[in-house]
Amino acid sequence: MSDTCTISFLIGNGFDIAILKSLDKNFTTTYGEFYDYLAYFLTNKENDIYKAIDNKKKQFSNNENETWKDYELLLKEVVRTKLIELEQYTDFALQEKVYLSFLEDWKEIQYTFANFLNHVITPQTLMDVTNMVVTDMDGKKTLQKFLGDLPIEEYKKIEFPQKINNHIKIDYHIFNFNYSILADNYFYWLFAYHPFNVSKNTLCFYPNPSNISGGKTSTNSDTRYFIRPSVNFHHPHGQLSIPESILFGMSYNNEKTYYRDNSPFKRELSQKLDKAYWGMHTDKVKPFMQKTDLFVIFGHSIGESDQCWWEEIIDQLKQGSELIIYDYEGKGLKKKILHYCKDDENLISDRIFVIDFDETKHLKYSFKF
């Protein structure tokens, strides 16, 4: 048995929306609310990105349920239109003018989005999230007991509990896909590094909180392992405190998507959409992914804008890792992620476990807000 296990949580916008609703906040981080904010506060209504957003809103009356995935697909179309416009000019100066103008539009949207998040998520909101520890709904409990929300048959199949024992080190990696730090505040706690005279253990991990028999280990709800945790936070899409780090787009990470002609503006404009490229996915993220024993996805729609992540998880599942997906309102997320499997999906299907929940079927051990 290894002396270290790695658990990677991938947190999507569904987390921010759910936690803000649970705190009875007036606003959340939905794309629809951002559009309303943009329409009211953006002074430059000639911004090409805003005009594309606004035109689509006016064109389709039934798109109030649009998500950030729809916004990123829209950006793809906006960039494609701009590339066609660049092709109409042979003069370098004119191409540069078009390109620089679009960069200013992009930056303006980034800063307006940052203002929107600051409007929605105040310091008081961050304090409220941190204070969830008082009501026993904080992220520390999620890290300890999330296996308890697995359905009985799913729990019986998962092998991860076999890897945990007393004194093991667990590296928790929180990949916060949101630009806010709500998830950081939820999972963060200030713990003493040496609470015991003879041990460096600082957390208990419960391998079987819901007392399910017939699993891979002979444990019960009273079983708890004293472990050495390490909690690490990552913001692969940028963060609010650095507005120009905010990444919107797709996750190609593939040079074939870039223009290979003599126009640097076409190439750089097409690269602008590549979140994996700017986030240095291969260099910064892949090493952690390759060490991960168990992936946990919460608050994601498993959309194509983050395709490189889903493909990387699939590669690791083929190597023996496992995956837990929280599926809110039964969106069929397991089927969606299997869609990115290029081989026989049966090779990894048995290593994916689903936790279904909704407004009437609440989680008991994890993400209890």
Results as ranks from 00 to 15, higher is better:
2 S>M: 13
271 Q>P: 01
136 D>Q: 10
357 F>W: 10
93 A>I: 08
251 S>I: 00
304 E>D: 13
78 V>Y: 06
2 S>P: 13
332 G>H: 09
328 Y>F: 15
149 D>Q: 06
152 I>G: 00
50 Y>M: 12
181 I>H: 11
106 W>C: 07
288 F>T: 12
101 S>F: 03
43 T>V: 05
149 D>E: 05
127 M>G: 07
19 I>P: 03
359 E>Q: 11
183 A>G: 04
266 K>M: 12
263 S>P: 07
132 M>T: 12
39 A>T: 06
342 K>D: 08
100 L>Q: 15
283 D>G: 09
267 R>F: 08
238 G>S: 05
230 S>H: 10
91 D>S: 08
248 F>L: 12
327 D>Y: 05
221 S>E: 10
44 N>D: 15
205 F>C: 02
255 E>Y: 07
73 L>H: 13
271 Q>W: 02
231 V>S: 04
75 L>P: 07
210 S>C: 05
124 Q>F: 14
184 D>C: 09
5 C>H: 08
128 D>I: 02
274 D>M: 02
5 C>F: 06
111 Y>R: 09
8 S>L: 03
119 H>N: 15
247 L>P: 00
335 K>L: 07
327 D>L: 00
237 H>F: 10
280 M>W: 08
46 E>P: 02
92 F>N: 13
256 K>I: 11
70 D>G: 10
69 K>P: 01
237 H>I: 12
99 Y>A: 00
204 C>Y: 15
21 K>R: 11
157 K>Q: 12
121 I>F: 06
158 I>G: 06
305 S>E: 11
355 I>E: 01
250 M>W: 01
275 K>D: 01
63 N>R: 10
149 D>N: 00
193 Y>G: 14
328 Y>K: 14
285 V>H: 15
355 I>V: 15
58 K>T: 08
201 N>I: 09
60 F>E: 09
296 V>Q: 12
214 G>V: 02
3 D>P: 07
244 E>R: 14
203 L>V: 01
187 F>P: 05
88 Q>W: 09
284 K>C: 02
328 Y>E: 11
78 V>I: 05
109 I>S: 05
337 I>P: 04
80 R>M: 03
131 N>Y: 14
22 S>E: 14
202 T>Y: 04
348 I>F: 01
34 F>W: 09
310 W>M: 01
300 H>R: 06
99 Y>M: 11
180 S>E: 06
61 S>C: 14
167 H>K: 15
201 N>V: 15
265 F>R: 01
363 L>Y: 03
